[in-house]
Design a protein around this nucleic acid. Sequence first.
DNA 1: ATGTCGAATAGGATTCGA
Length: 259
Amino acid sequence: MKIATFNINGVKARIDTLSAWLEASKPDVAMLQEIKSVDEGFPRAHFEDMGYTVETHGQKGFNGVAFLSRLPLEDVTRGLPGDDDDPQARWIEATVIGTRAIRLCNLYLPNGNPAPGPKYDYKLAWMERLAVRARALLDAQEPALMAGDYNIIPMDEDAARPEVWREDALARPESRDAFRRILNLGFTEAFRARVQGPGHYSFWDYQAGAWDRNHGIRIDHVLMTPDCADLLVECWIEAEQRGRDKPSDHVPVWVELDA
DNA sequence: ATGTCGAATAGGATTCGA
């Protein structure tokens, strides 16, 4: 089973780019972030016609997450538990049925800038809620993963120019600590289980020629429970997508599972 | 002058979020 997480930066603006990618790269499951659409505005029929089951959790204007799957999805839930008053659509879960059942948590973690400030407080509070859900996934002792745009640069080696990001919400110590605490509960970060060293990025800003200069950062991650990590075959970043026509500012991050 | 983009509001340029 091949699963990709992909922040698409607007499903309606990206429909041609996304369709071409699906045809060429053929994910069994695509976990999408920043659909920037309400559920009723999502081009559901278009992707169903391409052979995908569609599950969305959208809102007006910003945020929004969705699954496109060629395999059956069960037990879909929407919203990160822990704050019933949180209106932001940043979390959707489903169980995908392959040769094994895998629980998939699709997340768009708050950016948090400017930091410090209320947006940064929201980011850190959201990560506390994420840690609670993460512990429950581990307690279940089943194959599960949490994938998406974490808006976290885990280490300096994950940025082409770490000095630029030092005070940014994506790299501040509190952000990195919160991410590391979740990892240390017992998760495996799929990419670092397979590839070491600097120079691997999943996002390049639209501004200042970031792609041409390879001024990237690695902020899209896949965290796996032990039962899921045992199924990991490979993990890779499809960086070449950033050079295509009308690209997102993020690229897909893939895991292949023996499932 | 962040060498930009997408969506919303409003009915074209501006604002927000990233």
